[in-house]
């Protein structure tokens, strides 16, 4: 990837380089992210305390403890996501996750639940807290509440805001802003989506799992058409040669009497890619760029983090980033700037 000579996105020298926050679903992915130039990696424990509680994924306490030095020695921060919602009577698991993060001296805990945030701020007052996108805090009032009550130092904004709206919020809050720049883009109602729960009985927000793989069935017919089911519901059917997707309800194609053909009722299978908006985001006050994808492979992490590392460095040097190679890693081979560019993005 090479930087072009033109400098259309000149940034004032006053802007600091944003932190590149990268996903790590396994120790191998953590090492891949660190080696590819991540400023910070975020990960979760192997239980329901994080919103990517997928089978075979995440870190045991021992694996996290063993992985932190690898990141630290290379100047990379480690953030622990404890960002699902604690449920009675099992909330001890969330408190224990916070305690583990504090004991291992992670650089920050990413929280969504106010009970977890309260416990962390009271029990470990020196532990830095970031507010997860799962908290769905998208107004200055909501963000200030978390800052004042729990000492939150950074908010991860929901993906429902335009760049000018982010800029306006930035002027009214006392904390840093982290924004997603690449990866899966879902239902614009983070922390409040109950679609998976409706079909499978498992909650994205409380069990940490959206469209559990145990409920997913793929079946290809003799013509090469691929059916994707979640539970008893067919979420999509892909013709031979057509790009497939994971059957999340919000990205399914559905038949209704009102339409002749199946259509995407909520969202399309598509990935967020804000490569061309990075300078505007920096100017709007975003100090950390987040790459989604703890559930993806180390190869994916390496490719995306390398590309974004080069892009951020190019921008800070006044050059144009080239992220055209990332299209092959997007969901369904499609990308969007989502609501960041316009509320009418669909």
């Amino acid at each position: 990837m090479s930087a072009q000579k033109s400098a259309p996105h000149e940034l004032d020298k006053a802007f600091a380089a944003p932190e590149l926050v990268c996903p790590a679903g396994t120790p191998a992915a953590l090492r891949a992210a660190v080696d590819a130039g991540a400023d910070a990696v975020y990960c979760g424990l192997t239980n329901a305390t994080n919103a990517r509680n997928f089978p075979g994924l995440n870190f045991s306490v021992q694996a996290l403890e063993a992985s932190i030095p690898y990141a630290r020695e290379r100047g990379t921060k480690v953030l622990l996501a404890v960002n699902s919602f604690a449920t009675a009577p099992g909330s001890a698991m969330w408190r224990e996750a916070v305690d583990i993060g504090a004991r291992l001296k992670v650089d920050a805990i990413i929280v969504a639940d106010i009970g977890v945030a309260q416990y962390a701020s009271e029990t470990h007052p020196d532990l830095r807290l970031h507010l997860s996108v799962q908290a769905g805090a998208s107004s200055p009032e909501a963000i200030r509440f978390y800052c004042q009550e729990f000492g939150v130092k950074r908010v991860v904004l929901p993906r429902i805001l335009t760049v000018p709206e982010i800029s306006a919020i930035h002027r009214e809050i006392p904390c840093e802003i982290e924004a997603f720049v690449f990866g899966n883009i879902g239902m614009m109602s983070e922390g409040r989506c109950s679609l998976t729960n409706y079909v499978t009985g498992l909650s994205t927000n409380m069990d940490g799992i959206c469209s559990p793989a145990s409920e997913v069935k793929y079946a290809e017919d003799e013509k090469g058409n691929l059916s994707a089911k979640l539970g008893n519901y067919e979420i999509d059917c892909f013709e031979k040669g057509e790009s497939a997707g994971y059957p999340t309800i919000c990205k399914g194609r559905y038949l209704t009497p009102a339409r002749k053909e199946a259509y995407y009722a909520f969202e399309e299978p598509i990935s967020l890619n804000l490569s061309s908006l990075l300078p505007e985001l920096i100017k709007a006050g975003v100090t950390a760029f987040k790459i989604e994808g703890r559930q993806r492979s180390r190869s994916y992490v390496k490719s995306v983090v390398s590309a974004y590392r080069a892009a951020v460095d190019n921008i800070m040097e006044g050059n144009e980033p080239d992220l055209s190679t990332l299209i092959s890693l997007t969901e369904g081979g499609k990308q969007t700037q989502g609501a960041f560019k316009s509320k009418k993005w669909r």
Partner: peptide, 8 residues
Amino acid sequence: DSDAMFFS
């Protein structure tokens, strides 16, 4: 990336 290979 196995996911990308599956999607394609």
